[in-house]
Simulated scan of single mutants.
Amino acid sequence: MRNTALALALLLAAPLTLSTPSAHANPFGGYKTGTEITQKQMDAAEVGKTTQDQIREAYGAPSRREQLGDTQIWYYDYVNIKHFGKNVQEATVFEFNKKGLLSAKSKSNAVGKTGNPLIDAANGK
């Protein structure tokens, strides 16, 4: 009986020990999508000095783009739906002038309807 209980415990624990490193970072599951850009990373991008190429190299292609006159706006959306705690839904915004230099940067705490049914449902959209 004791050996059966031990074997069952080892069998149940095996998926936890064989899981990927990202599963260890969030052991309760959840869902992440997009590009997370921290405040420290935003602070490193200097207005008037950082180029579009440097932003693209650091974070990849933006989730969305807009052209308003001579200003190009790049959005990096990030969503982290957690099983426990507060969900994170934000957009990091970089604006570039016609020379391709960063002219403004900001972060919003809301992203519009994403088109992803899971994310939109979790956010009540």
Results as ranks from 00 to 15, higher is better:
1 M>L: 10
91 A>F: 03
18 L>K: 07
117 P>W: 03
115 G>L: 08
80 N>C: 07
24 H>W: 15
45 A>Q: 08
41 Q>W: 08
103 S>P: 02
9 A>Y: 09
11 L>Q: 11
43 D>W: 02
30 G>P: 01
76 Y>N: 02
103 S>D: 03
49 K>F: 06
82 K>M: 04
105 K>T: 09
125 K>A: 12
31 Y>Q: 02
82 K>I: 00
84 F>K: 08
92 T>N: 06
88 V>D: 03
98 K>T: 04
120 D>I: 12
16 L>T: 13
101 L>Q: 00
18 L>S: 10
64 R>P: 01
14 A>W: 14
52 Q>I: 15
115 G>I: 07
2 R>N: 13
106 S>R: 13
39 Q>V: 15
40 K>T: 14
68 L>Y: 05
63 S>K: 06
119 I>H: 01
51 T>V: 09
52 Q>K: 15
115 G>N: 09
74 W>E: 00
81 I>F: 00
123 N>H: 15
51 T>P: 03
17 T>N: 09
28 F>S: 03
95 E>D: 06
111 V>C: 05
8 L>C: 14
83 H>F: 06
56 R>K: 14
120 D>C: 12
91 A>K: 00
62 P>M: 04
103 S>L: 02
5 A>I: 14
114 T>C: 07
106 S>N: 13
40 K>Q: 12
21 P>F: 09
54 Q>W: 02
20 T>C: 05
91 A>V: 14
117 P>A: 10
46 E>H: 15
48 G>H: 07
22 S>L: 10
101 L>C: 04
50 T>G: 02
48 G>E: 06
26 N>Y: 10
109 N>K: 11
121 A>Y: 05
44 A>V: 11
110 A>F: 07
84 F>L: 13
46 E>G: 07
124 G>H: 13
22 S>A: 11
118 L>Y: 14
56 R>F: 13
28 F>C: 00
44 A>F: 10
87 N>L: 04
116 N>E: 04
88 V>W: 00
96 F>E: 01
3 N>H: 13
39 Q>F: 11
23 A>P: 00
4 T>E: 14
82 K>F: 00
41 Q>S: 13
90 E>Y: 05
2 R>A: 12
99 K>V: 01
114 T>W: 07
56 R>P: 03
97 N>R: 02
60 G>C: 12
121 A>W: 08
59 Y>E: 03
45 A>L: 07
101 L>V: 02
107 K>Y: 03
6 L>K: 08
60 G>S: 07
9 A>M: 15
66 E>T: 08
28 F>M: 07
122 A>E: 04
40 K>H: 10
3 N>S: 11
103 S>C: 10
72 Q>G: 00
75 Y>D: 06
30 G>R: 01
1 M>Q: 09
14 A>D: 08
74 W>H: 05
101 L>F: 06
103 S>T: 12
84 F>Y: 12
34 G>E: 01
28 F>N: 03
7 A>I: 13
94 F>I: 05
16 L>Y: 15
30 G>H: 02
44 A>M: 14
28 F>Q: 04
93 V>M: 05
113 K>S: 11
96 F>D: 00
125 K>V: 08
77 D>G: 06
98 K>C: 01
31 Y>C: 02
99 K>D: 06
124 G>K: 15
45 A>E: 04
39 Q>D: 14
94 F>W: 06
